[in-house]
Amino acid sequence: MPIDQKKLTEANLTVGYVAKRSGVKVSTLHFYETKGLIRSWRNGGNQRRYKKDVLRRIAVIKAAQAMGITLDEIKQTLATLPDQRTPTQKDWAALSK
């Protein structure tokens, strides 16, 4: 299975589901996406789909914002992770220092 197809298969959460689970508005998800903080894939019907790790990434973004860190600073910090992966618990411990 080509890598893009694999990512699309893993990306099965709808925007509404992610918004409800993460406690942010759909418009906030779209905003985060335009800022490069999160990523979605499009299905055959051109609808956004997210991988389940986006929920942890949004939780990290919200926690960082609550500590007064700007979205630009969050983006720069997340960009230091290999392949822009979602921070693990170990990553968060290092990043939060």
Rank of each mutant, 00 (worst) to 15 (best):
M1V: 14
P2Q: 12
P2K: 10
Q5M: 06
K6W: 10
L8V: 02
T9N: 10
N12Q: 13
T14R: 08
V15M: 13
V15H: 00
Y17L: 14
A19L: 07
A19T: 00
A19R: 03
S27Q: 13
S27L: 11
H30A: 02
H30D: 09
H30Q: 07
F31C: 01
E33T: 04
T34L: 06
K35N: 05
K35F: 01
G36I: 08
I38V: 15
R39P: 00
W41Q: 14
N43I: 03
G45L: 08
R48D: 05
R48T: 04
R49M: 11
K51T: 04
K52I: 08
D53T: 04
L55W: 02
R56Q: 03
R56V: 03
R56F: 01
I61H: 03
A66D: 14
A66W: 05
M67D: 13
M67L: 11
M67K: 15
L71R: 11
I74Y: 07
T80F: 01
T80R: 09
P82E: 09
P82I: 02
Q84Y: 11
R85M: 07
T86N: 02
P87V: 08
P87F: 06
Q89K: 14
K90W: 07
K90H: 14
W92T: 10
W92S: 09
L95G: 01
K97L: 08
